[in-house]
Design a protein around this nucleic acid. Structure first.
Ligand SMILES: [Mn+2]
Ligand SMILES: [Mn+2]
Ligand SMILES: [Mn+2]
Ligand SMILES: [Mn+2]
Lengths: 223, 223
DNA sequence: TCGTATTTTTAGCCGCATCTAAAATTATTT
DNA sequence: AAATAATTTTAGATGCGGCTAAAAATACGA
């Protein structure tokens, strides 16, 4: 396992995240938008990551991760999510405050540290946003997840993760009482704007925009 | 409080440490030796730190810290020592394994993180090597400390800190049963090589070289 | 005190990660 | 199928932090 710079690690993680949605290939501009840099900088970095064998890259044709690149990305994501658990569980941060801090801590690469931290936290399987924590071999325990947006009236589900970790979004969820683990039933879907009428935990009804429901991941429940 | 790079922070910490011993001024070569780099690189960095007002620097004449520089150094040292406590108290590392890891963690600069960590650890006053942890205003609670080397036969003292955190030294201390908090009485001093005959915790006698006693700090006890 | 040794600084180089502007390529529209 | 638009890459800078080699300043010993 070669040692990477923090910048290289951030790029790998970004490519991994985009591949999760996009499928197949990610473009230079998508990466630039995600990590807030310029397309020219991305091109430079892609050449370098390709030389190191971490991505498949043909000029102008977009990139995907090689197997070693995917493994590296999952190790970085593992560190990021373990630190997020630490910050929330032990240091009592809220889930909308931890992004920037975990973004730095993830680059401290000391294998023993990560193992001890994992143990100390009780081998958590999911981070505070509901995302799965890869094991030390870079494997993910995947659960079948669907976007809340995709449910039809009558369907029941449990909220398992959020797809957007901006402070604004997470604070909104706190305000309206949506949290990881909440049960939700879709009461109605407004055809005009795709917004949903929800029943949360069998008690509170709530109306959410399509923008919101597209950023919430659920596990379908037999209803 | 300006934002510094990790390199700048490491230099400030090194200068602080050398000033603690040397008094007055530190030389380019001393800094180079401590942080394992070349004198030319140190000269470059000194120019930059002087421009930022963190050190007093006259070419060829050595450096000392300005008041802002000293404050910055103490903030970095605070983070370093808090993380060392975390690694030993919570993650069960031994005191000879934590140097490199804390050396990286100290550069994660998020004020709220440091305050929460401090609170979580129960506001510790000393790190695992016995060194005092500066408060959040950069103040040190100082206790009068003497080098064990300086004691004369008959004098009693308590070990409060070590002056050298190399793994080799700390492992040696573990092996012979010297630890922070141990009571020690000087039984004899060998004039030829300055080595000491010690009684540890009133039970075990031990012979240590001057090299060792020079790296142990004690608080004198009325005997 | 003067010449040599040591220390420190400067000059010039490199790799990394970023940027802007321009060129090259690919995609879209008419 | 051109012409135009959008995307991507390259060219050329910059700042950072490191290096070696050479020059400058200081310290020291005869
Ligand atoms: Mn990061
Ligand atoms: Mn997360
Ligand atoms: Mn450091
Ligand atoms: Mn320490």
């Amino acid at each position: 396992m070669q040692k990477l710079t923090a910048a290289e690690e951030n790029y790998l993680k970004a490519i991994y995240r985009l591949l999760e949605e996009d499928l197949e290939k990610v473009s230079t501009n998508e990466i630039a938008a995600l990590i807030q840099t310029k397309a020219a900088s991305v091109s430079d970095m892609l050449r370098k990551l390709a030389e190191k064998g971490l991505i498949d890259y043909k000029k102008y044709r977009g990139v995907s991760l090689t197997e070693p690149g995917r493994k590296m990305a999952l190790h970085i994501i593992r560190r990021n999510r373990l630190w997020e658990v630490f910050l929330v569980e032990k240091l009592k941060f809220s889930w909308d405050e931890i992004g920037n801090i975990a973004e730095e801590l993830e680059h401290v690469n000391a294998p023993l540290l990560v193992r001890r931290l994992d143990e100390y936290l009780g081998f958590p399987k999911f981070d505070p946003h509901g995302d799965p924590i890869p094991d030390e071999f870079g494997e993910l325990s995947s659960k079948p997840r669907v976007h809340l947006e995709a449910l039809s009236p009558g369907q029941a589900a449990k909220i398992v993760a959020v797809n957007n970790s901006s402070a604004a979004f997470l604070k909104y969820l706190d305000k309206v009482g949506i949290y990881i683990g909440a049960r939700v039933i879709v009461l109605d879907q407004i055809e005009f704007d795709g917004s949903l009428e929800l029943l949360i935990d069998g008690q509170k009804t709530l109306h959410v925009s399509r923008e919101v429901s597209a950023n919430i991941l659920v596990m379908l429940q037999p209803s």
